[in-house]
Design a protein around this nucleic acid. Structure first.
Lengths: 241, 241
DNA sequence: CGCCGGATTGAAGGTACTCAATCCGTGTGG
DNA sequence: CCACACGGATTGAGTACCTTCAATCCGGCG
């Protein structure tokens, strides 16, 4: 579905936590480095199930995920809920709030996690002085737009098993981009959450997992996944019956 | 689904075409006005069916729609297609390209239309000098993210008739925000395109229209729509059977 | 007039949903 | 230490909704 996004996502994550690795794409001058450090960034811990922010909260900061993972979910008045994304290490979260100055969705930790806070007003000030930061911020927002186009395609035109294949392949790529195994990983979310994300009922998700396992595409042990054939999973995504 | 977005969308549309009405939210100084005018903006015409840009095209500009309307569609290798949005007067189009420096979808005129070109590099330079422009650009991008959250909710959790109700109500709001009738309007897109946007087959869209008409919610004459009861349409959206 | 594309309508079939029972792993308390 | 309870996951059966395929209608245009 979408390509790996780690490098771009991480870059503005932190200016002085881990400067060499996480800093801006273009090498910055010493002077520019100093400016980056103005971007104070408190690090915070979140326990599994706790809220990073809630729908309606005022925009304070964007958040760079240092460890762990989150889900974002969109709640409708009538109780309908939709998981709009799962975010992992190095990704930026909170962009939805810039539009109205208030968050439009909830962000909840899927496991104990650590985030780096990036006060948004400081980010705007700084990005006026650092063109590469400015452009980078634009790229991150645009990536989020492109990502959602991919989800729309998935929700609008794929069958259940294709959706799950797309989901697994996307996770695989993102793990790979982080130097983790692209074929063996732990899911941090429940079947219900996967279903909400993919526009399916949890039972359908479960059945699709079972079917993939029967066909030898993957090995599933509840939340432990091993992908046995990335190729065949890709074929499944492309709609081979 | 989502609130009207006209005011914010129009603001950066044009600095000197129609300065008083379309300019930045905050009143700018004369000096700032002059800077805005640096943002040269060629106006271009597009015939019905012609491409504003194609997937893969290099990012040159963002486009502010002056008249007419467009659709954006996302094509997958395997032939799958998904209409990701319908854009009308005052909306900004092309944000998807910032991510990779290339457009990720096609934009096609639904009728003869006029757009104002906003060279993106100039926009970045200028927004470093004009904080209100900078913030505004951020808001527009964030709005697009929030908009897609709404579509995800629609595609992920609504039944066919709820989706169509949401679609009609959204159009209604957007027409109203432009000073047009919120209850009588012409659709610029085919049943097939509506279906692609809503994740439905064109026949299902057609049946839903017919059903709404039978129930006295709307009056349909092919592409001429009259909403007879916004309230009841809203109820339908909220899932009353 | 007759064609053409888009829209409507009908009938049959399939996919995923709903409801329900069961399973399994984890954690808790006797 | 084991039994039990609990939540999440799996599996089954029946059904609803939407899709698919097909026929027909309608309006615009050559």
């Amino acid at each position: 579905m979408q390509r790996s996004v780690l490098p771009s996502q991480l870059k503005i994550a932190c200016s002085n936590c881990n400067l060499r690795e996480l800093c801006l794409p273009v090498d910055l001058s010493v002077d520019e480095m100093k400016k980056m450090e103005l971007l104070s960034h408190a690090k915070h811990y979140y326990a599994r199930g706790s809220y990073l922010y809630r729908s309606g909260d005022k925009l304070q900061s964007l958040y760079a995920i240092h460890s762990g993972s989150f889900k974002t979910q969109f709640l409708h008045e009538d109780g309908r809920e939709q998981v709009t994304g799962f975010q992992m290490v190095g990704e930026i979260i909170g962009l939805d709030a810039i539009s109205t100055d208030r968050h439009s969705c909830d962000a909840i930790a899927l496991e104990s996690s650590e985030v780096c806070e990036l006060p948004f007003n400081k980010l705007e000030v700084l990005s006026r002085e650092l063109p590469s930061l400015q452009h980078h911020l634009h790229k991150i927002m645009s990536s989020e737009i492109v990502r959602s186009q991919g989800i729309m395609l998935l929700l609008g035109s794929m069958r259940a098993e294709q959706r799950l294949a797309a989901f697994l392949l996307n996770l695989s790529q993102r793990f790979a981009a982080r130097g983790l195994s692209p074929t063996m990983f732990q899911l941090r979310m429940s079947r219900h959450e996967i279903g909400s994300y993919l526009g399916l009922q949890l039972e359908t998700v479960s059945r699709a997992f079972s079917h993939f396992q029967e066909d030898g595409l993957i090995s599933v042990k509840v939340r432990s996944i091993e992908i046995l054939s990335l190729q065949r999973l890709q074929l499944c995504l492309n709609g081979s019956p």
